[in-house]
Design a protein around this nucleic acid. Sequence first.
DNA 1: TTGTAGGCGTTATCAT
DNA 2: ATGATAACGCCTACAA
Lengths: 330, 330
Amino acid sequence: MSRLPTVTDVAEAAGVSRQTVSNVLNAPDRVREATRERVSKAIEELGYRPHASARRLRTQTSSTIGIRLDPVSDGISGSILDRFLHALTEQADAVGLRVLLYTALGADDEIRQLARLVDGADVDAFVLTSTYYGDPRTDWLIERGQRFVTFGRPWGINDMTDPAHAWVDVDGRDGVRQATEHLLEAGHRRIGYIGWPSGSGTGDDRHGGWAETLRTASVPDLDGLVERAEDSVSAGTAAMRRLMSRNPGLEAVVTASDGLALGALVAASGTTPVVGFDNTPVAASLGFSSVDQQLTAVASGVLELLTDSTNGPRHRLIAPELVVREETLR
Amino acid sequence: MSRLPTVTDVAEAAGVSRQTVSNVLNAPDRVREATRERVSKAIEELGYRPHASARRLRTQTSSTIGIRLDPVSDGISGSILDRFLHALTEQADAVGLRVLLYTALGADDEIRQLARLVDGADVDAFVLTSTYYGDPRTDWLIERGQRFVTFGRPWGINDMTDPAHAWVDVDGRDGVRQATEHLLEAGHRRIGYIGWPSGSGTGDDRHGGWAETLRTASVPDLDGLVERAEDSVSAGTAAMRRLMSRNPGLEAVVTASDGLALGALVAASGTTPVVGFDNTPVAASLGFSSVDQQLTAVASGVLELLTDSTNGPRHRLIAPELVVREETLR
DNA sequence: TTGTAGGCGTTATCAT
DNA sequence: ATGATAACGCCTACAA
């Protein structure tokens, strides 16, 4: 493992000054065609590549975005963030950004981590997930003028379009609406909903999509068609049992997550159509319909907001997409 | 966002030279108690933190490990790598290492990415997953004397203890043995096995654990108790149906993955005990037993091998652990 | 169009 | 025990 070639090596090989080499890389217009080719050839031959740290030191930018890898999520939908992370990494590379991971235990510790990364000039932008109104992390970042984008709306804030808080989110309400309409079109009317306990912005949003759609379709007695449960398979099973015993005429169910959906399917032995949310591998393997969050679009939205310094809107609401499948659990 | 404080600032504030500040940080022994305290106080007050890129440029080490984030895995067990990644990130921080992600499409592209990271001095060690004998990536790394550790044995190689190829792996054979013995102890004899098509090192290893255990227990006709399937829920269901129709007296099943286990459970409607592998969130939610890979131990093994330059063994075989649960899918 | 000079923040070497 | 000096590899003025 010999020494890596530097600009000086390339300059010598090409018979030019270091500066010209730098120009070829960073301002090709400023250098004559012939020289450029000669330098490029030398770069090629020596396998030269700019030293990232040196460049960062000089330019005072790290071209690196930090993202927290959450502790192992217990839910079946835990892979959403991982899938998002993958999409982000893939697309970040295309715009010359690296993705650096960090972990933290709780908000206080996370702020300590943010500070470390900022002070060490390791990172020059952050992507935060699951933020909330008054989140100390976003406050901390805004206070210090740090660049960041959150995946998730700042629920509870008055002005969601506040340009200081850039965000990208998935339109859960619309996703659930699509799911519910799909079931309506299939001829069902008594369509139940299994969601999370009310109080979470995301959860209430999704529930709203279902309620709105059925109300528009004039389905009566909506209250009796709703069940709330923690986001787990077993809670989904229990909720589905309650729902079925209360509604003998139950024809189909929309859920707030694939975990709940799986639980519901188990309870119904696959005899009742169930639509999930997140389009996890489990939904794909078992073959039930689910709302896909379009994480690729989310990732590109995040990167756009991170790199755009123009004065456009500082947020993006991504439309999810229902993936229709035939249930096979029977 | 004002300028970050530098050693010079600290030096001035403490009335010493830059070098002394550096010594306080990197060689505290070389500096007198009183001076050290004075400097430390200045560091504290100014909130000074070494500039990572500058340090890297100077020391020629990045203290960063690169790991590839695989494309979205379709299997239910996809979260294994993510859980490993989390454990790795968490523990890396404790030993002063950062984790940088990259993606790649296929082996050739991955080598290109490795080269970029190496040449840019972005990374000074790699963690590779799912390697195989003659893997061009490991060959490339070995050729260049690059530090790396793989998660997974180099199946097929003659000398697995070759110190040039450091690896950490989970003892799948032992895990399946534990699962099978657990079922034997529960009083079952006709214990089936649903695994992957033979030919993969990992798959054959796991199958061996089952076969060995039942052979020791003198269970006859093992061949009829085996089914092979792709790693998916639906393939698991199909395999389980074949297994049941061929073995009316089937009492329990061990599988090579939680995905197959879920499929088997669906086919058996939860009437037959099924043990999975990977201890995914799905196993936890549905409540079936599964072999846990002990990814925390894997991660610390990887970091040990990455940081240890002593001449100890360059590999670690981690013992997995069966997590026993009552099946609830009924 | 090309070259020269200087500095980004750090640490290693050598001297005091 | 502490300090001066130089260098890591790069880029951005500015000068030629």
